[in-house]
Design a protein around this nucleic acid. Structure first.
Length: 634
RNA sequence: GCCGGCGUAGCUCAGCGGCAGAGCAGCCGCUUCGUAAGCGGCGGGUCAGAGGUUCGAAUCCUCUCGCCGGCUCCA
């Protein structure tokens, strides 16, 4: 006898019947048993505890979406007979289904398909699970020339194959599914894109239709609003709008960023902060060139293993030079300029080093994926006995920096030794342990990615969540057992003999370009006061107050505040206020005859709030406080 | 790279076989203004590029270039 918990909270004991027969709940969706989702058509298990989920349960969402994917496929086969089906899973934000259409379809077709899906939902067609013997299944799929399904079938073990039928639509599927199409009420098709069969570029290009589905209309609408918000915050739109940067493909080159004055201003603030904090944390800043001889890259191994991501060589005086894709070989070269004693370690070299990597044109994306970018790089060279403390220090430092930029939620990923690796197992274990202790010591939530480390060492990656809850991988802390070997790095130990140091690569922000793009989206262009390229704009009410406005701006500049007086525009105050708001400038100081007479300024915040006349000193103090605290508030 | 979509003024877009358009931005005037667009005028284009179809192409066809979405969520 198993215990079955019904959605109402009631408990039933049952045996020998299916869940569906046991309950009458209209919106029952699936069953949770031993952490696994079961179909309601399954028989109640012999013993244990099973919980019946309704469409409103978050655990049932993937079942709901999976069924939505089937409804999509059903609609497509009705409208486009002969379309071949591939796969249609539920994903993080919804679902998709991959098809091979006999002719291309476009966005306009999505509306038609959606209409057809609505009909299928209205018809409230029951989904039935059918078990078909392998030979029969194969014949069935062959008959319909479902080549992709046949391929999938060949990989499924067992002699009885699970299919789902909804009306005239039949699909190879392991389930589980909702009992009936009528339960999928709130869905929308979103996008159309190409996708390779099984993600393999050598195989067929299919058409993927993305959609999403939710238990309630409110959730669906909330999701659609979220999507709209993400679209509005797109750094590629905000960048030009706020005059922060541009990427000029035709003239300058794909993936190469031009930082305009306001973007450069922000970058400079980030860099200054970064450098100051690194000095405080015991790092030493270095500068290294953009190109280096082929010998360097030969020694580092980049020419053997990384060449397809490097720019072609530049030949000067018969010597080949390569644009650097990484900074590490240069830092190692600095290390090797003299014999190092164990007393000197750890050495921490940091650099905002601009590197160039070839990326396929199709993957370039605004600032987030570029070909020339500045890593906030550092290499820590230390003794084996220092590893644990060093890692702990880096992690703590990383979190401090990320928090300073307004990120509060982090997830860490610990990637361990892969099958193919270099170095010895004892070093790997020691390093991996150090990484693990550090994340645990900092109380960070983390996941282990077994075997996902690079061939040269284990690593920790830190993912942050932005204001829209989107994850971004920023920090990476990576051991390297390869380069110290290749460059024969040594230090002299207390025993007077040479020893091999440990080397750790780390980047906190990743690259300045990408980080900046993420910041733009995180803040939606409304940067906190300490980062805002222009912190204050001073607006004269009319021509008579121009001298006063300029004097106010001058005093603010004098106090180290980034201020501008807009006195040359010849526009109305209304126009200037609107412009300042659109530029998302934190503080707007309006100067009219009253303020000029009393030596005050009328303070308006970028939120639109009018705070009335204030003495300038008070405003200065307020801005200073906002800068020191690095808050997002004004 | 591949699949689909899209390239028209600095920006956002309309026009989709018959004279290349609008709004914003820019320039020139007038207006001197109290918290999200004052008024008028002017300039601005190889309609991404090349080839083709046609009496006639921004519009239809082919190729090239560029941009956007996606190509690691596995019946």
């Amino acid at each position: 006898m198993a215990r079955v918990i019904l959605p109402s909270g009631e408990t039933r004991e049952a045996q020998g019947i299916t869940f569906l027969e046991l309950i009458h709940q209209g919106n029952a969706a699936a069953v949770l048993f031993n952490g696994k989702l079961l179909d309601l058509r399954e028989p109640v298990p012999e013993e244990g505890e099973a919980r019946v989920l309704t469409t409103a349960d978050p655990e049932a969402l993937e079942v709901l979406r999976h069924t939505a994917a089937h409804i999509l496929a059903h609609a497509v086969t009705r409208l486009f007979p002969g379309t071949k089906l591939a796969i249609g899973p539920a994903i993080a934000d919804g679902f998709y289904y991959d098809f091979l259409f006999s002719e291309p379809i476009s966005h306009e077709d999505l509306a038609r398909i959606e209409e057809e899906m609505k009909k299928i939902v209205e018809q409230n067609i029951p989904l039935e699970r059918v078990w078909i013997p392998r030979a029969e299944a194969e014949r069935l799929l062959r008959e319909r020339s479902e080549v992709y399904k046949l391929e999938l079938l060949s990989e499924i073990p067992g002699e009885e194959i699970s299919f789902y039928r909804q009306g005239e639509f039949l699909d190879l599927c392991r389930g589980p599914h909702l009992p009936s199409t009528g339960l999928v009420q709130h869905f929308k098709l979103l996008d159309l894109a190409g996708a390779y069969w099984r993600g393999d570029p050598t195989r067929d290009m299919l058409t993927r239709i993305y959609g999403t589905a939710f238990a309630t209309e409110e959730e669906l609408e909330k999701f659609l609003r979220w999507r709209e918000e993400a679209r509005r915050r797109d750094h590629r739109a905000l960048g030009p709008q706020l005059d922060l940067f541009s990427i000029q493909n035709d003239m300058v080159g794909a993936g190469l960023v031009l930082w305009h004055p306001r973007g450069a201003r922000i970058r400079r603030i980030i860099e200054d902060f970064w450098v100051a904090e690194h000095y405080k944390a015991g790092y030493q800043l270095v500068y290294t060139p953009h190109i280096g001889r082929s010998r360097l890259w030969q020694t580092s191994g980049h020419l053997d293993f990384y060449r397809e991501s490097m720019y072609a060589p530049i030949v000067i005086e018969g010597q080949e030079f390569f644009l650097k894709p990484m900074n590490c070989p240069f830092h190692i070269a600095i290390y090797k300029t003299k014999t190092r004693s164990y007393r000197e370690l750890p050495l921490r070299y940091c650099e905002l080093g601009t590197v160039y990597r070839f990326e396929r044109s199709g993957v370039l994306h605004g600032l987030l994926r570029v070909r020339g970018f500045t890593q906030d790089d550092a290499h820590i060279i230390c003794r084996p006995d220092q590893v644990e403390e060093e890692i702990r220090g880096v992690l703590r430092f990383a979190l401090y920096i990320l928090r300073s930029f307004g990120f509060a939620e982090f997830t860490a990923y610990l990637s361990t030794r892969p099958e193919k690796f270099i170095g010895d197992v004892a070093d790997w274990d020691r390093a991996t342990e150090a990484l693990r202790k550090a994340v645990e010591g900092e109380g960070l939530a983390y996941q282990v990615k077994t075997g996902e480390g690079a061939f040269y060492g284990p690593k920790i990656d830190i993912e942050v969540q932005d204001s829209l809850k989107r994850p971004w991988q920023l920090t990476t802390i990576q051991f390297d057992f390869n380069l110290p070997e290749r460059f024969d790095m040594t230090f002299v130990g207390p025993d007077g003999r040479p020893h091999r140091p440990y080397m750790i690569h780390r980047a906190l922000l990743g690259s300045l370009e990408r980080f900046f793009g993420i910041l733009v989206e995180h803040y939606g262009g409304a940067f906190p006061v300490w980062l805002a390229p222009v912190q204050v704009v001073v607006l004269p009410v009319s021509e008579a107050e121009i001298p006063y406005a300029e004097k106010v701006a001058g005093e603010l500049l004098e106090q180290g505040i980034r201020a501008e007086a807009w006195t040359k525009e010849g526009k109305t105050l209304r126009w200037l206020v609107r412009e300042a708001q659109l530029q998302k400038i934190p503080y707007i100081l309006v100067c009219g005859p009253r303020e000029a007479a009393e030596g005050k300024v009328a303070l308006r915040l970028r939120t639109g709030e009018d705070q009335g006349p204030k003495p300038l000193d008070e405003v200065v103090l307020r801005i200073r406080q906002a800068v020191c605290a690095r808050t997002t508030g004004l």
